[in-house]
Amino acid sequence: MSHLNPGHKWRLSGRALKHLTLLAALVLMLIPVHGWLKLLQPYWLALVLIYWVMEEPEHNGLFTAFFYGLLLDVLYGSLLGKHGLSLLVIAYLVSKYARQFRMTSFWQLSLIVGVLLLNDLFIRAFIDWLTHGSLPRLEDLLPVISGVLVWPWLKLLLDHLHARSRR
């Protein structure tokens, strides 16, 4: 830890990048799209969160998940804590198994991401059912599929940005 000072600096810029990308994910989720594109819109925030928790599992991803989940709840006008709760579960699972996840192959990881998104979808559907009695529809699964398809590219992009911020 002789280079503590520059190391600190790097970490800060890494943290700035993390929050910038999370905010960008939120903005992406706000952009109005119509028709079938709306049904296909992936859950960007969860994807970016999965990436950062996997990269830095020791960095309190839980609070990040909680905080950004609440922001999304405010933005979407949904029940306060709904997205917070579901993102927390994702963050916890990823942080617990981050090492294994990083060992798995690129494509297997996409599948794991799909499972995580599906799990998140179940939680939110359950909360919706409890509060409004509304039942999930089949097209709610589409964001999971698009999320899995988008994940590899997103990971490449974030890897690239992350590496640059560390250089």
């Binding site: 909680f66 609440l70 029940l79 306060l80 917070g84 709760l85 927390l88 509060t131």
Partner: peptide, 17 residues
């Protein structure tokens, strides 16, 4: 931490509802 934050979320939801 996970359980505490989860509890906070559940509480928030119940209170908000």
């Amino acid at each position: 931490r996970f359980l505490v934050l989860e509890l906070v979320c559940v509480l928030l939801m119940v209170l908000d509802y």
